[in-house]
């Protein structure tokens, strides 16, 4: 194997640090005629935790397979760690693709040893130690000697993560890493992603459950029906949706409060003691200030940003869990 041609200097500012994953017009049309991925331009900056979101069947896994060189694009191109040839950089990439896959009759540790033996660039002398570290990291050390077929779904998923962590990686591609995990396991995966990101690893993590990983992401891309609807830094995505404000006041203050809000330019709807309005460009802090100034007895004040799921529904006009 030739040494990976690293075009990225060792020390660079985040702006020029290059991209972990970039695609241009990436398209996959299967022989059945189905267009699984339709000309997407993915951009995962180095150091990002990129949440790759979309319902089941929206093309996330096929995109990931193309990025990793498992599936050949019909057209378009993909760069992995700035290399157009995935094989050159894959040793620096840990991957979990469409669920774990291991030999059922081998133990967890033997399965890791097998993968490590396959890695031309890994050091056989440190294989045992690295396997132990990876197993410990995912909390599987106690079950390392059991055959894989005896693992629970959650343990299988953990072994998949351990395989991705067999070496230090520049990029982790985790396709649905929380599948089959209980809430505790899901929390642990989130924690793991956060830890890895802090240590400088870029993480591309896909999920069909928006809420599950949304919290750890710095960047988000949303797919639907083979297209990338939206992508960018988290805060940019968040500010896309229309925020609403809800003010609750004491009995007898509703009319005064409504008047104050209308003066601020809001289109107020009233429901018993709660006044609601779209926030628009108004700074939220102005509202309680103005209300208190007018002598309104405010008992509750809340600004609601739309959830990612609501943004998705707004974009597509359909629920998130709609399979193709």
């Amino acid at each position: 194997m030739t040494a990976p041609a690293t075009v990225v200097p060792a020390v660079t500012s985040p702006v020029t640090a290059g991209t972990a994953v970039r695609t241009q017009g990436l398209t996959k049309r299967f022989r059945s005629g189905q267009v699984a991925v339709d000309g997407i331009d993915l951009l995962v900056p180095r150091g990002a935790v990129y949440g790759f979101l979309g319902p089941n069947g929206s093309g996330k896994t096929t995109t990931i397979r193309m990025i990793l060189g498992l599936v050949r694009p019909t057209s378009g191109q993909a760069w992995l760690l700035d290399s157009p040839n995935p094989a050159d950089v894959l040793p620096r990439v840990g991957a979990l693709v469409e669920g774990p896959g291991f030999h059922p009759y081998l133990t967890g540790r033997a399965n890791l040893a097998r993968l490590d033996a396959a890695d031309q660039t890994s050091d056989a002398r440190t294989a045992d130690r690295r396997a132990s570290e990876a197993l410990e990291r995912v909390g599987l050390l106690a079950a390392e000697g059991k055959p894989y077929r005896q693992y629970s779904l959650g343990m299988k998923q953990r072994l998949g993560l351990a395989a991705a962590l067999l070496r230090r990686r520049d990029l982790l591609v985790l396709d649905e890493p929380t599948n089959g995990l209980d809430p505790q396991g899901t929390r642990e995966v989130r924690l793991l992603i956060r830890e890895l990101a802090q240590a400088g690893t870029t993480v591309l993590v896909s999920s069909h459950l928006l809420g599950e990983i949304e919290q750890v992401c710095t960047h988000i891309g949303i797919m639907s029906r083979g297209r990338l609807l939206l992508q960018g830094p988290r805060d940019v995505i968040d500010s896309r949706g229309v925020a609403r404000v809800a003010v609750t006041v004491a009995p007898g203050h509703v009319a005064t409060a409504a008047g104050v809000l209308r003066v601020l330019g809001l289109d107020v709807s009233i429901e018993e003691l709660t006044l609601g309005a779209e926030l628009g460009t108004l700074a939220p802090a102005r509202i309680p200030e103005a209300l208190v100034h007018a002598g309104v007895d405010v008992t509750g004040f809340e600004v609601r940003r739309p959830s990612l799921e609501q943004v998705f529904v707004e974009l597509t006009g359909e629920g998130f869990d709609v399979a193709r």
Partner: peptide
Amino acid sequence: SAGTLRYLLTVPVG
């Protein structure tokens, strides 16, 4: 069928 092929290929094994 065991799902191990995709993992061998992404190790990567040529």
